[in-house]
Structures are given as C-alpha cells and as structure tokens.
Design a protein around this nucleic acid. Structure first.
Length: 482
RNA sequence: GGCGCCAUAGCCAAGUGGUAAGGCAAGGGUCUGCAAAACCCUCAUUCCCCGGUUCAAAUCCGGGUGGCGCCUCCA
C-alpha cells in the first residue's frame, strides 16, 4: 500500500486510484520562455521517480506533463530576441527535451502544448460562462471567484485576507479583485486565436484544466508540481475544473519543495540561476539525480559544489562495485543452489521506504546495504563456496537493476560510466595522459627492480598531478582525484 | 499581517507514540613492499528551548526561539 502526502488534506493518506490498478497523473510542465534551471530539474526528477515507482508497483500509469507555450513571459522574451513567440517557445521545447533526456527523465505518455489545445480551452471557458461562473468584459473573460465557495481549499487561505491584498492590474476589467483571467483579449502583435469573445489567448491557469481533462478525464488521481504552484495556479485549476464539471477534480495533490543555493534563493534578480544544462557540463547526470533524490521531495534542498562532488563520489562507489561484480560474476553459470542471505530483503526494505510517500532517502539505506554486501562478497567473503558467492552476486546485481529502473540511477554500463567520468576529469584538470602513462611505466620498472624508494617517489609525483594509482593483479591502473 | 513548512551527530539526511536508518568526514584495524579500493570496529543516553498528555514522545498538545516558502511571475 502506497501512502501519499496530499496537499489537499495536509496529511499522508493511503493511495487508492479511482480505477483499481490504473493511475492517471498530471505534472505541471515548464513555461518555455528560457532554459530550465536546476530547481525545475529537481521537481521534474522527483515526479519522474514517482512515475517510475508507480509503474514498478504494477500500476497502469498515464503520465501527462504539459508545455505552456502561450504566456506573457514568452511574449516578453520574444520581444527581446525579435522572434515570433511560437518560434521561441518551440526552441525552448526542443531544449527542454534535450535536457530531460540528459537527466534521464522518462517521456510522459502525453506532452500537450497549449497552442495545440485552443479549441478545448475555448470550449471549457464557454462552459464556465454558460454556467454563470465566468464573465466577459471587453474581450477578456474572468473567472468569478465568489461563485465558487470552496475557493482556497488547497492553499487554505482566508478569502478576505486575499481580497485585501489583491490589486487589480491596470487594463484589467475584473468585477472583483480575486477574479482571474481565463481569456485575454489580443493586443497588437501578440499571438491570438479566434473565440466567441474576439481575438485573444488563454490566461495562465485554464490550459491545465482543459488538457488534463482531455487526456486524463475530468477527475483523475494525481497532480504534481512545485510548492509555489499551490497558489494561485493549482487553486485556480481546481476552481475552474470543479465549477465546470460539478465534481471533484484531482484526488491527490503532491508538491515538491524548493531547491536553494546554499541558503540563498535562486532568482533572476540575484543573478544566481543555475541552468540545468550548465550544471550537466560539470557533473554526471546520474550524480545530479542522486543529489536531487538525496533529500525527501517535500523538503528543501540546498545546492552546493560540495554536495555535487559528494554525489559523484558516491556514484563512483556504486559503479566501481558493479564493475567488479560484473567482472566476477557477469554472464557466468554458477548452477542452481543456495544463496548467501536473502537478497529479497533489500527489495522489501526498498519498497517499504518507497511506499511511504516515496521516501527515496530511506530507500537509499537499502541500496547502501546491498552494495556493502556485494563488496563484502567480492573482498571478504563470509562463505567459502565460490558457486554460492557467484549466484548471490548475480542475484544482488539483479536487485540493483530493479532499483535502477525506479530511481533512474545506475542505468549505464559500469565500465563506460567510469571511463566517461575519468575522461571528464582528465579534461577538467588538464592532465597529460602520456606523461601519466610514462611515469607509471617508470614506476613499474623501479618496482620490478625492487627499488621501492623510486617507486614511491613516482607515486608522489603523480599524486601532485592529481592522479591516484592503484596496483591490481592485472597491473597498475589510475584515476583522477575529484 | 495571513497561510504553510522546517529545526535530528562536524556535515548531509531518514524516522510522526515503544526506546535514534543510511551516507560523508574523522579515528582505529584487516589487506598492501608502500598506497588506493574494499571490508570490520568506534563515532547522538539523545533529537532547538520550556511546559503538558501518556506506562512510554524526536514523534501528540500548548507556549517560545531560530530559519524558510507562499500571499505578485516563479518548479
């Protein structure tokens, strides 16, 4: 039984989708006016793991994540670049797809764009107008909040307080301050579509109501997004959808906590926004995922170079272990027979943590135990029987594959991953590979001649260059110190 | 001001009534010509503070203190 912290109730609840065995999930995707930053990436990674785990648990999942490609910010950005807004939006949709792939995010089943769903949006607005909860005013259409008594049930705000703080923007034609735009009359040069209220474009919130209804139905199971979307975006979605359909909208609302930069908020005005694609130049994608997942999704997460380096060191441990396991036991036949211990115990621990509101940090404990045991079997086997060790290593390796599928980690070939990381570090530190190899050969000669003083001197020289050498039965290998 | 979140070892971080997961760092050990890697051991009588409820609280309640988010575009 999976439990989920539901923002609607503020509590952890048993997760029971409307239709048994089937989950319909909607995650608010990016507004494509620029590249996504690492905060966006954290949220998308969190829901990526939610989606993966629901599938792992056997649910038939329909996963929708939209692109908001019609919006004020896009129009403004396009003014600066001189592009057409649609063209700029498409450029950033393409960029997002690249970023998402690089971060190992699974593809949603549907990635709808606002610009492809104007008819659905217009129809939904019309329905709200017909029901008398929305009104036209000089080419704009507004949702009348006072007509929806349950307004603010998600964010639990006091309506009077909200009214006191609300200001009507110049040019807006609202009856009441809290009313929000469903449709905005076109201004010259802006993208516009025909509607019963004249040329215009959708307001911000309506697209999610229209598109989720189209692909998931009017009442679906899970809706996700960043913490900041609770108000007003999700609040407004609920109001629009429920006012239109006269039935409860989404049943479970999940919100991901913020990522900050060592305590400081990431914001454009501070000039400290870290783009995902820039971060991925410096750190391995899986290490970045590991970092995102190292704190529970609802808690704040603090980004720093140190935390990134730590994550990568941990990934190196995992991959180094897997490389050795594959070398020892990969593709071999150890026959049938008993195992050492119970590999399934790790699966049970993993699932118990994940079932509890997707507690990935808790699941990492199971992962740690699994890797410690693999290393123990490799280096200090507690049993003598080589077949038992081999079979157990293979079984444990299979368990890591299960976890990998859920976490989107450790999906690479271990050898490839380690080599790629080494290449990146060599490039970053500007290490002269030929010189390293020459020094290692020099040292090998010294060792062969039992001249250990000389050998140690070479080791020190390499160390000063940032290169660490390891003597193995197969010869001396080296790696770059992170 | 309103709403909400958070406060656990040097650091990161789980744990929402039954007596403190996991990781990093550190110290000791095994292994090694020396190292590295790996493994083993040690590392919070205690969970921001003060009260209360309970046989029992990091966990529930009340009151503080400190940090943060939203209330305006924001993942």
């Amino acid at each position: 039984m999976i439990t989920v912290h539901n923002t609607l109730t503020g509590q952890k609840e048993p997760f029971t989708p409307k239709e048994p065995g089937k989950v319909r999930m909607y995650v608010c995707g990016p507004t494509v006016y620029s590249y996504i930053h690492i905060g966006n990436a954290r949220t998308f990674t969190a829901f990526d793991v939610v989606a993966r785990y629901l599938r792992y648990r056997g649910f038939d999942l329909t996963y929708v994540r939209n692109f908001t490609d019609v919006d004020d910010k896009i129009i403004n950005a396009a003014k600066e670049t001189g592009e057409e807004p649609v063209q700029l939006a498409q450029r950033y949709i393409d960029a997002f797809r690249e970023d998402a792939k690089a971060l190992h995010l699974i593809e949603p089943d549907v990635s709808p764009k606002v610009s492809d769903h104007i008819p659905e949006i217009v129809a939904l607005i019309q329905k709200l107008v017909d029901r008398g909860v929305a009104y036209e005013s000089q080419g704009d259409v507004y949702f009348q909040v006072s007509k929806y008594p349950q307004y603010a049930k998600l964010s639990k705000r006091n309506l009077d307080e909200l009214r006191a703080g609300e200001r009507v923007q110049p040019g807006e034609q609202k009856r009441e301050p809290l009313d929000f735009a469903l449709w905005k009359a076109a201004k010259p040069g802006e993208p516009a579509w025909d509607s019963p209220w004249g040329k215009g474009r959708p307001g911000w919130h309506i697209e999610c109501s229209a598109m989720s209804a189209k692909y998931l139905g009017e009442d679906f199971d899970l809706h996700g997004g960043g913490l900041d979307l609770i108000f007003p975006h999700h609040e407004n979605e609920i109001a629009q959808s429920e006012a239109a359909t006269q039935k409860p909208f989404c049943r479970y609302w999940m919100h991901c906590g913020f990522l900050d930069l060592e305590g400081a908020k990431m914001s454009k005005s501070l000039g400290n926004v870290v783009r995902l694609r820039d971060a991925l130049q410096r750190v391995d994608p899986e290490a970045l995922r590991f970092f995102f997942l190292s704190t529970h999704y609802r808690n704040p997460l603090s980004f720093s170079e140190k935390s990134l380096a730590d994550a990568e060191t941990r990934m190196e441990y995992f991959y180094e272990t897997l490389r050795r396991v594959d070398e020892r036991a990969g593709g071999k036949d150890f026959g049938k027979g008993p195992l050492h211990g119970d590999p399934e115990q790790f699966v049970r621990d993993f699932e118990r943590a994940m079932d509890d509101d997707f507690n990935v940090p808790g699941a990492f404990a199971a992962l740690s135990g699994l890797f410690a045991l693999m290393n123990e079997l490799l280096d200090k086997p507690p049993v003598k029987d080589k077949a038992v060790i081999g079979r157990t290593l293979q079984a444990l390796r299979e368990v890591t594959r299960k976890f990998a599928t859920v976490l989107g980690l450790l999906e690479d070939d271990p050898h490839d991953w380690l080599m790629r990381r080494r290449e990146r570090l060599i490039a970053q530190k500007g290490i002269d590979r030929a010189k390293v190899e020459a020094l290692i050969a020099e040292r090998a000669a010294a060792r062969a001649a039992k001249n250990f003083e000389e050998a140690d001197r070479v080791r020190e020289t390499l160390k000063a260059m940032g290169v660490e050498i390891m003597d193995t039965p197969a010869g001396t290998t080296w790696k770059v110190q992170a």
